[in-house]
Simulated scan of single mutants.
Amino acid sequence: MQGDSWIGRLVIGGILLFLSFLIVPVFIFYGYLVRVLESTIEGDSEPPEWDDWGGLVVDGLKATVVGLVYGLIPTVVIVGIGAGLIGIGSAAGNDGGGLLAGFGLATILLLIPVLFLVYYLVPAALSNMAVEGRLGAAFDVGMLKRVVLTSDYFVAVLMPIVVGVVINVVAQVLILTIVGGLLVPFVMFYGQVAVFRMFGLAFAKHAPTDGGQATDVATTA
């Protein structure tokens, strides 16, 4: 809500989420969140403006690719292995088969911690991509380790969970009325910008600048 044009930013963001069923607005929205990361890491205290719409779409597509690579690949591998073990065990039909099926189920249950790990890593990956301007930067293991193993980043990842709960409660209350329901996309946009601001601040504190030192960004959202 900082800056003179915050109402306009909020209105545009809410409208994009309201039109998310058209798909393209989703990519624009994701691109804006990447831009929030970039501006935060660069030290800006005011959210970015809505401009360079083509660039927003491109950044949104990149963010989608990053999320798919981090989330879809391990999911497919784990579910594939688990389903295979369950199928073999069921076909065997004896004690050994039951044991295999049990291992298969346990393998699929590994998705829970794996997906949490994905949720933990993706914000840092997107932050590095936003700073470097390259899709490959999202997979820079050395940089990610430098950031994600810090307590600041750990807290920054946990806080959005709290924000998400609060936003969802507000949304559930608003949706009880027609007028309130129309406000939900705007509330969701506000919450997402706040969350990505937190991610950017945590990343900026430990990511090196061109000079090799961590950036010094104010810690107030």
Score class of each variant (00 low, 15 high):
Ile108Asp: 05
Tyr119Leu: 10
Gly67Cys: 01
Gly87Cys: 06
Gly89Ala: 14
Ile73Asn: 06
Leu100Trp: 09
Ala130Ser: 13
Arg134Ala: 15
Leu61Ala: 09
Gly133Leu: 13
Asn128Ile: 11
Val77Gly: 13
Val79Met: 09
Lys62Met: 10
Pro74Asn: 09
Leu135Asp: 15
Leu72Ile: 04
Leu117Thr: 06
Gly133Gln: 08
Gly89Asp: 09
Ala63Met: 12
Val66Gln: 09
Gly71Pro: 02
Ile78Ala: 11
Gly98Cys: 08
Gly80Asp: 14
Leu68Asn: 10
Ala101Trp: 07
Val118Gly: 04
Ala83Tyr: 06
Thr107Tyr: 11
Ala106Ile: 00
Gly104Glu: 01
Glu132His: 03
Glu132Trp: 01
Asn94Phe: 10
Ala83Leu: 11
Ile88Lys: 15
Gly82Phe: 10
Ala124Asp: 06
Leu126Val: 12
Gly96Phe: 03
Phe116Lys: 03
Gly71Arg: 06
Gly67Lys: 01
Gly102His: 02
Leu111Gln: 08
Val131Leu: 12
Ala106Val: 00
Val131Ile: 08
Ala92Ser: 03
Ser127Met: 04
Pro123Trp: 14
Val114Cys: 07
Pro113Phe: 00
Gly84Ile: 04
Gly136Met: 05
Pro113Ser: 15
Val65His: 03
Gly82Glu: 14
Leu115Val: 02
Tyr70Met: 05
Ala124Pro: 01
Ile86Arg: 06
Thr64Arg: 00
Phe116Arg: 01
Ala83Asn: 07
Ile73Gln: 05
Pro123Arg: 10
Ala83Ser: 14
Ile88Gly: 13
Asp95Tyr: 04
Glu132Gln: 09
Met129Gln: 06
Leu100Arg: 04
Gly89Asn: 13
Val122Leu: 03
Val77Gln: 09
Ala106Phe: 04
Leu111Thr: 01
Ala125Thr: 07
Val131Glu: 14
Thr107Asn: 04
Tyr70Asp: 07
Gly80His: 15
Asn94Val: 11
Gly71Val: 00
Phe103His: 04
Pro113His: 12
Phe103Ile: 02
Leu61Gln: 07
Gly136Val: 13
Tyr119Lys: 00
Leu121Ala: 14
Pro113Asp: 15
Pro74Tyr: 04
Val122Ala: 06
Pro113Cys: 15
Val76Glu: 12
Ala137Trp: 15
Tyr119Cys: 02
Gly89His: 10
Phe116Cys: 00
Ser127Gly: 11
Ala125Ser: 10
Asp95Val: 08
Ala101Asp: 03
Thr107Glu: 13
Leu85Pro: 02
Ala124Phe: 00
Leu135Glu: 14
Leu126Thr: 01
Phe116Val: 02
Pro123Gly: 09
Ala106Pro: 05
Phe116Thr: 00
Leu68Tyr: 09
Val76Ile: 14
Leu99Phe: 12
Ile86Ser: 09
Phe103Gly: 12
Gly80Val: 11
Ala83Cys: 04
Gly87Val: 03
Ala106Ser: 12
Asp95Asn: 01
Ala91Cys: 15
Ile86Cys: 01
Leu99Asp: 05
Ala124Thr: 10
Val79His: 08
Ala83Thr: 05
Leu85Glu: 05
Leu105Pro: 02
Tyr70Pro: 08
Ile86Trp: 01
Thr75Glu: 10
Val122Trp: 02
Val122Ile: 05
Ile88Thr: 14
Val118Asp: 03
